[in-house]
Structure formats: C-alpha cells, structure tokens
Design a protein around this nucleic acid. Structure first.
Lengths: 190, 190
DNA sequence: CGTATAAATGAATAATTATTCGCTTACCTT
DNA sequence: AAGGTAAGCGAATAATTATTCATTTATACG
C-alpha cells in the first residue's frame, strides 16, 4: 500500500501560511490551499478531516515551532543579560524568518476555527518565558512588576516591529536590531 | 418619503465589531451581522453595496475614531513629557474602551476586504504621532532612532497590553497603568 | 390627511465553498 | 512480479452565504 507523505503535510502548511499572510484567514479556501500546494482538493481530506482540523493543526504546529527555537543556545549558568539577549534574538530572528507564522497566529487568535483546547495548549508553551523574566526579577535586574505584563509588553513590541519591518520590506540592520534590544532592555530593567 | 437612519449605520457597525471580536473576520456573515443588529439582511444593502464596502467603511471609521481622540487635551506649549503622557493615556483609554475596534483593525490588516485605497488613507492618519515623537527627539528627550521604529515599538506594546488585559478580564489598575507608562518612557527616553 | 417615495423585510436565488466519492495511480508486501 | 491497500485525483454534490427582489411599512411633503 501507499503511505502518507509527511512532506505533503508540510507542503499544505506552507501553502496555507502563505495564503493567510497574503489574504488573511477570512479569504482562504480549501481550493486555494490545494492549488497553492499543487495537489488535488480531495487530497487535503486524506491528511485532515476538514478545514477546522487543518487550521488547528497548523496553529499548534506554528506555535510550537516559534517557542521551540527560543532557548537555543541559552545557558542558565551564564549571566542574565546576555542569556536574555540570546533568547530575545532567537525570537526576533525566528519571527522575521517566519513572518507568515506571525500573521497566521495573530489571525487565528480571534477566529472560529481554533478550539478552546488548542488555545489552552498554546498558552502552556509560554511558561519558559515567564521563568526567564522571573529569574531576572530575582536577580534585581528586571522591574518588580507583574511578569505577564512585562512579557506582554515585550512580545507585543517585537511582533509589531516584525510586521512593520516586513511591510516596509527593509532588512533590519544590525544597528537597528541593537537599538531595538536597547529599547526592550531599557523598558524592562529595574 | 422615508429617510436613511444614521443610527442604523452605527447599529450595523456595532454588530459587526462585536462579532469580529468574538469570532474573527473569518467567521462573520451578513446574516450574523443583521441578526446581531436586529434588522433584516436585505436592509444591510440599503446602507452598503455589499460586504466589502461595509467592512471598508467600518475600517475607515474605526481607524479615524482611534486617531481623533488621541490628541484631546494635548497642548503643544506644555513640556514634552506630560504632553506625551496625555496622548499616550488617551490612546490607552480609547483602546481599552473600544477593544472591539482594536481586534477588528488588526484582523482587517491581512484580509481580502480592505482595498489599497482604504489602507493608504489609514496610514496618512498616523502623521500627528510621528510629529509628536520628532518633537521629543528635537528636545533631546527621546532616543535618536528611526521615528517609525519607536512608534511601532510603543504601539505594538500598547496593543498587546490591551488585548492581554481584555483576555484576563481584569481592569487595569492605576498602578499598573503608571507602571506601563514607565516601561514605555524608559524604552523611549534618550 | 393622502400620496409618493424610499426604507425595511425576509424568502428566493445566485454564488461560493466545503466535502464526498468513484475512479486511477503509486508503492509496499510477499 | 502480482496483488492489495491506501494515496491521489477532480468532478459532482452538499452546505453555506452573499445578494436580489417582490412586497410591505413608514414618513416627509404637499
């Protein structure tokens, strides 16, 4: 018998991400996705039970990806600031390189597709970020404010920056990146 | 003869905003809007030529509203920091009170509904904000960085904060508001 | 008041889109 | 190499949703 092709799932995901970044979640059809992926519409239903499941799976996957990369190269034994910078940089780089995921996640958040369960799992993935900020607070380097507030502030700023960068299609220079880190750090530092 | 009823347009807008905040732009139908507004579906077509026009009009209106309020009480002759705080506070307050518009504008940005023209008009509305930041830079109070970068940073942070506040349905205490302003100011200040 | 005019209605229609299904093709197993 | 099983296909169908339209209702104006 013929087996399912994992690369095909990836193909479908890429097609969906591309279309959502271009047209928004509101303007995306199963036909569009299959055409963009270069497969038949019916094939989508071999891999997913329907549109809802496709979007939920892609949401979970995108979300997991973006978190997974964040702590690459982070070493808890090194001082806080450079460690924080490593994570911060990982996040920024990932978001810049995966702009489509940024848009997709944003659009999904208020959508009829994402189930409460999918949403809950996405939330849980954020705990390492909380831990990181709390470490900085324990070391008196970061403001003693609600952790969630600080995190929200930074992530919102980063996200918007990534979007803005994309629209103006410049590449963020090293100078600008350093500057932006400075903005973040100055905002957070005690 | 019977005249068009301006309050009805407002009713339609409110219904659409409410639904988009709840279900996203992807999950909203003309039937839903009319039901939520308490009018017949056909009546929507008395006021708008179709769904596209409705969404574009609401986008333009929402965007204009949020900008219009920002400079209320701002006096260019007073020192920069309190003036900036006034504007900042206006924006925050407006966004908190009009959460639905925040979500709607965000969802629209990547959607097939909004035309290039509508988008361009929205962009033009932002110039007073650029002017404000530039004033701060001239007075050496604000970092000498790309104005658009600074603005993007702040607006992204604020937006995310408003969303986060809404989801956790707490009311932002004065303490937290002051704290958040401090984050913004520390980020921007030279 | 009465009438003309346009708003308002909501069921009917048109258009779009998700999903199914009978068939073909590929490829794993033995 | 042959058979069997599931992937892959895309036209057909089902479901949903935008839009129209014949009719009713409200109201501005004479």
């Amino acid at each position: 018998m013929k087996l399912k092709d994992d690369r095909k799932v990836e193909l479908i995901y890429q097609a969906a991400l591309k279309l959502v970044a271009r047209k928004g979640l509101a303007g995306i059809t199963m036909g569009d996705i299959s055409r963009e992926a270069g497969i038949a519409t019916g094939t989508l239903y071999v891999y997913f039970t329907g549109k809802d499941e496709l979007i939920n799976a892609l949401f979970a996957c995108s979300r997991a990806n973006s978190v997974q990369v964040a702590f690459r190269g982070y070493d808890a034994s090194q001082p806080f600031k450079p460690g924080f910078r490593t994570v911060w940089m990982n996040i920024l780089r990932y978001k810049l390189q995966h702009f489509e995921e940024v848009v997709f996640l944003e659009q999904c958040f208020h959508s009829p597709y994402i189930t409460a369960e999918t949403r809950e799992k996405a939330r849980e993935l954020a705990t390492p970020f909380y831990d990181l900020i709390e470490r900085g607070q324990q070391e008196q380097l970061i403001k003693q404010a609600d952790t969630s507030l600080l995190l929200t502030f930074i992530m919102g700023a980063l996200n918007e920056l990534v979007k803005q960068t994309h629209y103006s299609n410049e590449t963020l220079s090293k100078r600008k990146i350093d500057l932006t880190f400075e903005l973040c750090w100055d905002a957070l530092k005690a």
